[in-house]
Structures are given as structure tokens and as C-alpha cells.
Design a binder for these strands. Structure first.
Lengths: 198, 198
DNA sequence: GACGACACGTGAAAC
DNA sequence: TGTTTCACGTGTCGT
């Protein structure tokens, strides 16, 4: 049942490892190489309607139909970036409406809002070393610090270059981007035998 | 016993609300203005030893003494940034060693590792609009995009200024090479954790 | 009391 | 095997 939501074309051999050898630059390359978890672009509301279909012994939670309205399967097949292999717990067989019916829904909504934010944070951070949430946060922090230091050095260099030739700023160049390679090469290991230049 | 870990000087009036007005810019100002939650710098291992002391009906979990070794109280008083008001659930009255004794510890360790990462992500992101985790992630993503666009514009400006006056490049800079970013950078592995750009 | 945000313990999958 | 990461439901606290 799981394979219906995640088409087999996006499935990978279980021997993952050692992909994306020299892909690097810093231009936000797409990250659709492996997908070990659900860390991909959250196209719309996707990770909402997972129970009742994914898990065979689904919970009988009365999900509100205007919120968890699952898209037609054609649209589902067009977007192979749902969570490939679910890791967590099953949606529990609870739902005895004792005193927390909408609470579990609200918590679920909050949870996958947070997961969406994780997804699009991962979309803007290159070189995410591992796929954990913790590593993503650490890489985001180091990337922000690195970007900030690069901005500082570039500002300093721009000031020096501009006081060298004050007329340079008013010209229109052919917009060829350059990347300063000293002091910010920073080869980062992505696995056992792969690296990426940031 | 609780007050020893969290000194009363860091306690807040219960009427929190409306902090972090316009503090921002982007220069990594310190964020020690209000502390509505535990989003502060995680000085060392602090959020580990919280149960059994904070909650009156604490769990009787046998925490390993070499991991949750709390620092001397003098160091604790010097750093008043523990979590002020705990929000979550109590550490459950379980701990019946049926089949998951170290599992709850491992999960707890993972949880506050993630919280530490949240803390030091929050340390490098300015303008954190609200104190939620979700807002922090969203602000981090937008801040990364903003920093990146600023780097791009600064690089373009630097290049224009440098190709206007080519004597600036041969100035006293320490071998500042420039590398065009459109062509592939070939990283060659020299060992297990070393690489060379050729 | 309802809503929002967190942390907790726990089952289950991946490594 | 054991370790690690994740999602789930739930209790609790503060608006």
C-alpha cells in the first residue's frame, strides 16, 4: 500500500552511499539523489494524509475532510517526493474520544508544519552532510556563519576596490559571476569517498 | 533544588509577552533580553539533568552518572541561561524496566541534542520573529536566502570593480585567485579526509 | 474551556 | 545483534 503513494521509480537500491561526487559550486543544486527520508520539497500538503492508507491497520481517526483532502492519484504520481519509507510509529489505534480528539490533529498539524520548515530549510542549505534533523540544523548554522564571514570579506574587498577605481560601480558588466577561491574553498566530506566544494 | 540550577535572577514574571520588538540588524547581537523559553545558548550540557529535580513527582530513571554529570554550581551561577519555565510533559512515572530502559535515555539525549542545535541556530539567525521552532526555521531559511543574494550581488560588484582596475588584483593580497563558477571544479581525493582542487 | 507550543515515553524502521 | 532516528499520541503549561 505504501508503494502506491511512492512510485517505484523513485525507489533506490538499498546500497545507498557514494552519490553526488563532485557536484558542488554553490548554486543550490537539487537534492533529489537519494531520498532516504522525507527531506524533500514539500509540494503542497502532502504529509497530512498518511494514515488510513499507508498503514494497513490505520487509525480510525475522523479526519476533517476539508483539511486532509487527499489529491487525486494522478497528482500523487506526478510528485515522487513524498516520504519514501516511513520511520516513526504507526498512527496509534487510539481515537477513543475521551478527552482529546482534536488535540491529536492539532499536534499532527504542528508536527508536519515543522517538518515542512525542515524541508525548505534543507532546500536552501547546501552540503547537508547527513540527513538527520540535528545535522541539518548544525549545517545550517555553520553555513550561515560562513556566509556571513564571506559577506564581510567581500564588503571589505569591494570597498578597497571601489576606492581604487571609483568609476567602476557605474558600469554595466556582462554579469559573469566569480567565486573567490582562496580562504573559502572548504572541501566538505559527504561520505566516505565524496566531497563537495562550497 | 531547582533554584540552584536555575537561579532566581533568571526567572521571569508570568506575564511574558511582547518581547524582541525590533532588535535585529544582522550582526549577531546577543539575545539575552527576555528568554521566554529555553532558546538560549546551551553552555555545555545543561538541559540534561532536569528531571528528578524540576518535577516534584520525578521519574526514578537511573541516569548514568558519567553522562549527566552536572557542573559545579559556581559555573552554573555564572551562566543563567537554562530553560526558565518548562513547558512539556512531566517525565513520566514509568521507568518500569520491562524492555525499554536505555531507550528513553537515548531518546532524551537525542531530543536535547536537537534542542541544542536549535539554540545555536537561533544564535546565528537575527530577527527571529517569534520563539517557536517553526518560526525559527522559517527565519533561518529566509535569512540564508537573503545572505546568499547579498553575496551574489557583492561578488558581481567586486568583479566589476576589479576588472575596471586590474592593478587591484596584483596588490598586496595573499594570492587571491579567482575562479569562474560555471566550470566544474574537480576535487581529487588525496586520502580519507583530504582533497585537492585541481 | 479551547488553542498553541513542548516535552515526554514508546513502537517501529533504518543503519 | 545493538544503536540511532523518527513519528505518534498524550500530558501539561501558558496564553
Amino acid at each position: 500500500m505504501d508503494d502506491l503513494l511512492c512510485p517505484p521509480s523513485s525507489f533506490l537500491p538499498p546500497t545507498s552511499s557514494s552519490q553526488f561526487c563532485t557536484v558542488g559550486h554553490q548554486v543550490l543544486e537539487f537534492v533529489s539523489q537519494d531520498l532516504p527520508e522525507q527531506w524533500l520539497f514539500h509540494d503542497g500538503m502532502m504529509s497530512k494524509n498518511v494514515d488510513g492508507e499507508l498503514w494497513p491497520m490505520g487509525s480510525t481517526l475522523p479526519r476533517s475532510p476539508q483539511l486532509s483532502e487527499l489529491p487525486p492519484p494522478s497528482l500523487l504520481l506526478a510528485n515522487p517526493q513524498c516520504h519514501a519509507k516511513r520511520r516513526g510509529r504507526k498512527p496509534g489505534p487510539r481515537s477513543d474520544g475521551r478527552h482529546s480528539v482534536g488535540h491529536v490533529q492539532a499536534e499532527r498539524q504542528r508536527r508536519d508544519k515543522l517538518n515542512r520548515r525542515f524541508c525548505d530549510l534543507r532546500a536552501v542549505v547546501p552540503n547537508v552532510s547527513r540527513m538527520d534533523k540535528a545535522s541539518l540544523l548544525a549545517d545550517a548554522a555553520t553555513y550561515i556563519a560562513e556566509l556571513r564571514s564571506r559577506v564581510a570579506s567581500l564588503e571589505e574587498e569591494t570597498n578597497k576596490a571601489l576606492e581604487e577605481s571609483p568609476t567602476a560601480a557605474s558600469r554595466g558588466g556582462p554579469a559573469s559571476k566569480f567565486l573567490q577561491v582562496d580562504e573559502t574553498v572548504e572541501v566538505r566530506m559527504m561520505g566516505r569517498d565524496a566531497a563537495a566544494v562550497v
